[in-house]
Design a binder for these strands. Structure first.
Lengths: 228, 228
DNA sequence: ATTTTTGTTTAGTTGGGGCTAAACTGTGTC
DNA sequence: GACACAGTTTAGCCCCAACTAAACAAAAAT
């Protein structure tokens, strides 16, 4: 009964809304109209209109004046888009020499046009990878996604060793800067000092050495404890 | 003055219309409303509407009740789409193991979504190829395309040797059959007999051997003289 | 407990790109 | 020259997905 409606192909817009709602409601709560609007760069009334259509087709649930959440069906559709996006990003960097700061835009357009078949072929060609170039987990074709508990570098315990697992931005300028600094997934990091009042964080990279970065960036660098 | 209008991105539909008009008017003449309609699977009035928009933006010229032709600007836009399509088809077959009978549909959707950048990267990865998997010439980024004079196998002189250069269909069933028969670009062929009244053609393949094919297919197989 | 502010929704409009039904043209036939 | 017919165009409609302006709810401030 979950698939009462057939697999009607979704429009480009619908796919974008579902992805946005997925990201905005990932930490449990509701995605609000204005958050969706600003993420998609449209006016709030446009979002209200789309919310009506999406909840009519059963992809989201809407609590007026509070926000929306994905239904199971909607979450699956969103995860399918996220899989597409991340496989494409990885394929473009690995096989067509894109830089990790340039793939987002290209993948953003392609994800709406390619077939599941192509995505699966790309994934196979890459050895069914689990992470995209920014360290974000790639959902499986069945819609399962790894839910790792990661801690922003801004908040990790000084002295302990962590692995930088994921860089949580698609902004080309930030990504370029971080790559220059060697702050890429897989690196081992230890925080050696932190200035008060949201000041910069001093850290040691292995391999690499000393770095000082601002809090804004330190919030984007998601880490995991490695030593016990 | 040819580029009075900026490089406004064209819609998916507009791109499809330009491609269709290019193909239909390639042998000199006008593309008619109903030919465009049946090629794009839309109703004739829809074509009339689009013709208005395209000629308003200067991409085509319209002679009422006669048909349309591409302007220079329109031809360039069409050739850009054809380049995209053919590079994609070749990339998918060469790098992602698609069969030559399955690439068309995928390329058809992707060609509207990818950047010129990606197409050029794919072309570079393939060594700037000149022909797609069906032997059709790939336009250059500047919009130049090879205009070879090819003769349908149905019409070639018996006894002489030709090279099969291009297979002029995208129909998966026909393509599959032709591949099974070894009728792929690059093969050397000699016609050894032809039945009257549009009957089948008997030919020898090198390498391969004897084949008998109907006239319908023989019209799709485009050949070039090889011996002097 | 009102009032103000902020955020959301409804109402009404626009443009792209389809559609059907009806009017019109051009061509070929008697 | 008149007519029939095939093909083209116009008229009028629909859906999607955006927009602005205005009405409405909820939360914050007085």
């Amino acid at each position: 009964m979950s698939a009462l409606l057939a697999d009607v192909p979704l429009s480009r817009s619908v796919e974008d809304y579902l992805k946005a709602i997925y990201h905005l409601s990932s930490q449990g709560g509701f995605a609000t109209t204005s958050d969706i609007a600003s993420m998609l760069m449209v006016a709030p009334p446009s979002v209200s209109g789309m919310i009506r259509r999406l909840s009519d087709t059963g992809l989201i649930e809407h609590v007026p004046y509070r926000g929306v959440q994905l239904t199971n069906q909607g979450r699956l559709a969103a995860l399918r888009m996220i899989r597409r996006h991340r496989v494409l990003e990885l394929y473009l960097t690995e096989r067509l020499d894109y830089d990790w700061d340039g793939v987002h835009e290209e993948a953003e357009r392609m994800e709406h046009a390619v077939s599941d078949e192509l995505i699966d072929r790309m994934a196979r060609a890459l050895g069914n990878p689990r992470y995209d170039p920014h360290g974000a987990p790639i959902p499986t074709p069945a819609g399962e996604i790894e839910e790792a508990v990661l801690i922003p570098l801004a908040d990790i315990d000084p002295g302990l060793t962590y692995e930088l697992r994921q860089v949580d931005t698609e902004d080309p300028a930030r990504l370029r800067y971080l790559a220059e600094q060697g702050l890429v997934p897989g690196k081992a990091v230890t925080v050696t000092g932190r200035q008060p009042f949201n000041g910069p964080v001093t850290l040691t990279l292995q391999p690499g050495g000393e770095r000082v970065i601002g809090r804004e960036l330190a919030l984007l660098l998601l880490c995991r404890r490695t030593d016990v």
